[in-house]
């Protein structure tokens, strides 16, 4: 897909309308961004500034004290803090990798094969986008208990493979892969899996990058508290939330925690934005 320059010659645009839309964007853009800036400022405020009266928005004497305190606190934790970080990284990496492979395989077959039941299957997946996963939380717990997956990594990793949004986006994007390309690979004697893996997958790079980011966002914030009891299996967001519960005494550290949790997904999105937008261009639900 090529990027078109829309603004080379602008059509039907009045100056008044331009000013109006820019004013609106500036007002609401500030509304969106100010709390984020406040969060960033707070993370660098020394304690006396955090509890200053009247409170000040921007930081006057930025300091890394809060982050130092956070690391000190981490060093004291009962389970080594690196364990929480490892748990979250492991769950996120395994869940994301599995999701991309499993969802792409299904999407490939649904889009490129057209077999009996494929339409029905896809329409069920689309319907499942229409309710949130809280609806299935209780039976999910029972299923995990039946599988003896409670208190294991599996309980967090495997369900992530089946996120319907990933399959949906991938299937829509697969439409852009020309059939002739796949056909010529098959003519050369490639197996169906080989065709999928070495021909189709490289073509849909923006889409799997999008799946990686979306699945990362979900797993990165996963506290896993419903399924995991053992302290040494708990995740980073869980541990950080415990720190946040410290309230006033931990205000500085808490601000550092909020910044750490927000910065990772935002930076990742920044880096991958153009791929994600390219994928979303095929995200529509057709009648």
């Amino acid at each position: 897909m090529k990027h078109r320059k829309l603004n080379t010659k602008r059509l039907n645009r009045s100056l008044g309308g331009d000013i109006f839309s820019i004013v609106i964007l500036v007002i609401f853009g500030s509304f969106m961004v100010l709390p984020m800036i406040y969060a960033i400022c707070n993370a660098f405020k020394p304690l006396d500034e955090l509890f200053m009266f009247p409170p000040r928005f921007f930081v006057r004497n930025p300091t890394l004290d809060n982050f130092r305190d956070l690391f000190l606190l981490m060093a004291q934790s009962w389970v080594p803090f690196s364990r929480y970080i490892f748990n979250t990284l492991f769950i996120t990496a395994a869940g994301t990798a599995g999701h991309v492979v499993v969802a792409s395989m299904a999407a490939y077959a649904l889009e490129k094969h057209k077999f009996p039941g494929s339409k029905l299957f896809f329409s069920i997946v689309v319907t499942s986008l229409m309710f949130s996963s809280v609806v299935t939380a209780i039976p999910n717990y029972l299923v995990m208990a039946k599988l003896h997956w409670l208190d294991t990594y599996l309980a967090l990793i495997v369900p992530a493979f089946g996120y319907p949004l990933g399959l949906f986006l991938m299937k829509q994007f697969m439409e852009t892969v020309p059939d002739s390309l796949l056909e010529s690979a098959r003519m050369d004697g490639a197996s169906e899996f080989r065709t999928f893996w070495t021909v189709a997958m490289p073509c849909v790079k923006p889409a799997w990058l999008t799946l990686v980011i979306f699945s990362f966002q979900t797993l990165w914030g996963n506290t896993g508290s419903t399924f995991i009891y053992s302290e040494e299996l708990k995740t980073l967001p869980y541990a950080l939330n415990q720190i946040l519960l410290g309230g006033f005494a931990r205000a500085g550290v808490g601000a550092a925690v909020v910044l750490l949790m927000m910065i990772v997904p935002v930076v990742l999105f920044m880096v991958t934005q153009s791929s994600i937008i390219q994928t979303m261009a095929t995200s529509g639900i057709k009648e």
């Binding site: 984020m36 990165w220 927000m262």
Partner: peptide, 8 residues
């Protein structure tokens, strides 16, 4: 950004 920033 606000919709993806964890518990910001």
């Amino acid at each position: 950004a606000p919709s993806i920033s964890g518990n910001v």
